[in-house]
Design a protein around this nucleic acid. Sequence first.
DNA 1: GCCGTTTTCGGCCCGACTGTTTTCAGTCG
Length: 576
Amino acid sequence: MENRVIADMLEEIADMLSIDETPTTRFEVRAYKNAALTLLSIQEPVESVYKRGGIKAIMEFPGIGPGIAGKIEEYIKTGRMKKYDELKRKYPIDFKGLLLLEGMGAKKAITLYKKLGIRDLSDLKKAVESHKVSTIEGFGSRSEEMFSKSMQLQESSRGRILLGVALPAAESIVHDLMDSGTVTKVVIAGSTRRMKETVGDLDILAISKTPEKAMDVFTSMNDVTGIVSKGPTRSTVSLNIGVTCDLRVLPPESFGAAQQYFIGNKQHNIDTRKIAIRKGYKLNEYGLFSKSGKIIASEDEHDIYAKLGMQYVPPEMREARGEIKLALEHKIPTLIDMKDLKGDLHTHTKETDGVNTIDEMADAARSIGLSYIATTNHTKSLKVAKGMDDRQFAVFMKKVDKLNDSLDGRFRVLKGAECDILKDGSLDLSRQTIESMECVVGSVHASFRMPEKEMTDRVIKAIGSGLINILGHPTGRLINEREGFAIDLDRVAQACEDNDVALEINSWPNRLDLNDTNIMLASKYKVRFSINSDSHSTAHYQMLRYGVGTARRGWLTPERVLNAMPLKELEKSLKR
DNA sequence: GCCGTTTTCGGCCCGACTGTTTTCAGTCG
C-alpha cells in the first residue's frame, strides 16, 4: 500500500472538516494537512514502519501525534478509517479530482454538492455546460468560465509535464523577455528550478522598469494559447505544452526574498519562516524583517539564509527532507555539478539504434567538454534495437581501437556494451567478449513483470557476475507511462556495494532512473552512481543536466559519481 | 490535532488576488 492512499484520506478529512469551521477545527484541519504532507515525504511505506515499531514508530514523524497515528493504525489493521467514513457519508464528493481545478477549494466543492448535488468532474461539467453553477450564490459567470477552462486544460495535459519539456520552455520564455529589453533581470522559479521530474506549472520572476510592456511581451509570445489573467505585477498564460505559466514582476529590493519564496517548496518555506520567528524576525516574499519592521535582508537570497544563521540551500534540495537542519549546522554538502562531469558511460551508435557514428559521438562529447565516453551498444536479444552479437562487437571494437589511436590521448572512447540482463539473470554476451571490454552497463529490457523476489534475484545475479560495471536504469520506470518493475532496492544497493557496481542515474527526462528518493535510499550504502545520458544521437548529451539535477535532488556529491572521475582514476576503478 | 531552546497550555506561516461582494470569504502559492 502506498503512503499516498492514506495521505489522500487525511487530506480529504481536512477538506471535509474545513466546512464547519470553528476556531478549533481550523487548526485541526491544518494538523490533518500537515500529517498528509509528512506521509507523502517519507520513503518507507508507513505500513512497514508500523510493522517494525508499532504506533510509536509512526508518531516519530513530525506532525503525526496520537490521534492521527491511531487512525493510520486503524486503517492498516482494518482497511477502514471510521472518521473518514463518517465524513464521507456526509460529503460523498471526489475532492481529489475537483480540487485540482483552478479556483476550487473544499468549501466551494461542498457548496456545489449541497446546492446542485455535484460529486465529481463529470457532474460539474454538465452543470457548467447548462450554466447552473452561476445561479448559486457566491458563484458567477467568471467562476463557470474558470472551471470550464481548467477542466479543458486538465483533459489535454492530464496534469504535469516532464522536466525535459518544462525547463526548455521556461528558458525560452526567459530568453524572449531578456531579448525584448522590457526586463532587467529574469529567473526561473518553482519546481522547474528545483529540477523536479514533473512540473505542474511554470514560474518566472522578473525585475522591470516597464512592467506593462513586459507583460505585453509575455502574453503575446508564440507559445501562448490563452491569457488567464493579466496585471502589472502578475500575469498567467496557458502554454501550448499543456501547462500555465506565471510571470511576476517584482521590485528590485525584494528580488532575493521573492526567489526564496517562489522557488519553494512550500514546506521548505514554512520551515524557514519558523526559523525566522524563532529568531524574532518575520519572513515573507518581500524580505526578512525585524519585529519593528526593519529590513534585515531582501535583495539577495544568500543574505536571507545567512541572516537566519543558515547555509545557502541549493534549490534542488529545498524539499523539506532534512536540508533545513543541515543548513543550520552548516553541513550542506557540495553537490555534484555539470562541470564535475568528466565523461558519459552510456552511449549508443548507428550500429544499433543510434543515429550517429562512433566518431561523431566522440567528437560531440569532446565539444561539450567531456574527456571520455563509453560506447555501449545494445546486445543481441534486444532485437528491436538491432542488438549486436559477440562477433559484431569484435568488429566494432576494432573500429573503436582505431579511433582511439587517431585521437592520440586527446579524448578516449571506452569499449563497452549495454548488455541485457536476461530473464534468468545471465548476460547476453559471452564472458570472453565482456572481459575484452572496459565498461559494461547491465540493463533489464524485457520480462518486466516478475514478482519482486524473482526480479531482485535476477538483477543481483548479474551484479554478482563480476562482469558489469553499472546497473542501467535500475527500476525501469517510464514517467507517466509505466511503473518501475518490482525490485528490492535495498538488496540491490547492498549487492552493488559488495561487487563495486555503480547505479545509473539515467538522464532521459522520461526515465530519470534512479529518481531522487531512490538515490537517497541507495546512498545509505557505499555505492557509486553514474550519471549517464544514454545518448542515441549527438544531440542527446544535453540531457545530462536532467540527470545531474536529479542527482542534486538526491544530495549527491562528486565523490560518489563514477563519471566525475578523471580518466586515469576511472580506468582503475573499472577493473573487474 | 500537534507540539515544546519562553512549553503540557496556548499557540499554530503569511500575504495577495479574485470574484463576488459592498467589506469579505475562499483560494492560491
